[in-house]
Nucleic acid binder design. Structure first.
Lengths: 150, 150
DNA sequence: ACGTAATAGTTGTATTTGTAACTAACAAGC
DNA sequence: GCTTGTTAGTTACAAATACAACTATTACGT
């Protein structure tokens, strides 16, 4: 009786679209810089916001701190970022890109920009904007309790 | 000069939305049946299409055959499905749910149905339908060569 | 000031995943 | 009927991930 169809199930569609649309770009940062997804994300956050702590990145990117920790270690190993202990609170470290890191970021940013345009090429500007809005809304809402009860 | 913004980058948005919107549902099939995402997907495909081969599932779900292979093995171990060798071509096996598998599927299908409705609760039916269409379009297009050239 | 709790970040280990190599069965050309 | 190639599915091993436990430092309550 329910019209449920796997191919219309939103989480399924979102995962498929996310996977497919990430693939080609993933190939680029992997091939050019040997980066993984989390490293790319950290790089981009630092590129966009200049200076952040691991915790701030974790919050914004909704990533677990262990992922950040490992990504930061790798990026540091490649001399793409440096850490600076905070003077007041010696637990936190301020992360920032090195010139090399910034160069990689700028390169990948250009690729991402073109890639994004290609992705929405057959959508009207309004459609594309609307899509982004809807996705952002879905991404923010924590749905942990929508399934309470039988 | 480029208006590129990480938070508007479509693959990023898609991944975030996919992750967040999968979480609560994932919790259900994990808690109730100890399933992983790929096992759930196989279960759902068999539930929706009655009988399929591993290859057919791989094609439809856009999953690598090793994932299917392992998911099938696990589901078989839990007596959720059975395999039947094809008479004509003895390489292929036809997979089908057992009654226990079907029960799990029906249970999860109901949950998924409710969950999907909750996800689109604050969208108009037209908006929701449009969103699904766009996502399906993004999921189908192979973008492997959009990034050729500098 | 001292004990308890919270926070930033790291590390260890068990699971999962990705990739390639593998086995078995069929197909096609000659 | 062999050789070569393809396809269905599995297995092995390296890499990546999740989750919990850990260290170090700061904050709070009394």
């Amino acid at each position: 009786m329910s019209g449920f169809n796997l191919e219309h199930f939103l989480p399924y569609l979102l995962n498929q679209a996310a996977e497919v649309s990430s693939l080609a770009f993933q190939q680029v940062y992997k091939d050019r810089y040997g980066m993984l997804r989390n490293e790319w994300r950290v790089l981009f956050h630092l590129g966009m916001y200049e200076q952040m702590t691991a915790r701030q990145i974790a919050e914004r990117a909704q990533l677990h701190k262990t992922k950040i920790s490992r990504a930061v270690a790798k990026l540091e190993g490649r001399r793409f970022l440096t850490r600076a202990r905070d003077g007041a609170d010696r637990r936190v470290e301020h992360l920032a890109l090195t010139p090399a890191g910034r160069a990689a970021f700028e390169d990948l940013r250009r690729v991402a920009d073109r890639y994004d345009q290609a992705l929405v090429a057959d959508l009207s500007p309004e459609e594309a904007a609307h899509l982004r809005t809807l996705l952002a809304r879905l991404a923010q809402r924590p749905l942990s309790d929508t399934l309470r009860g039988k």
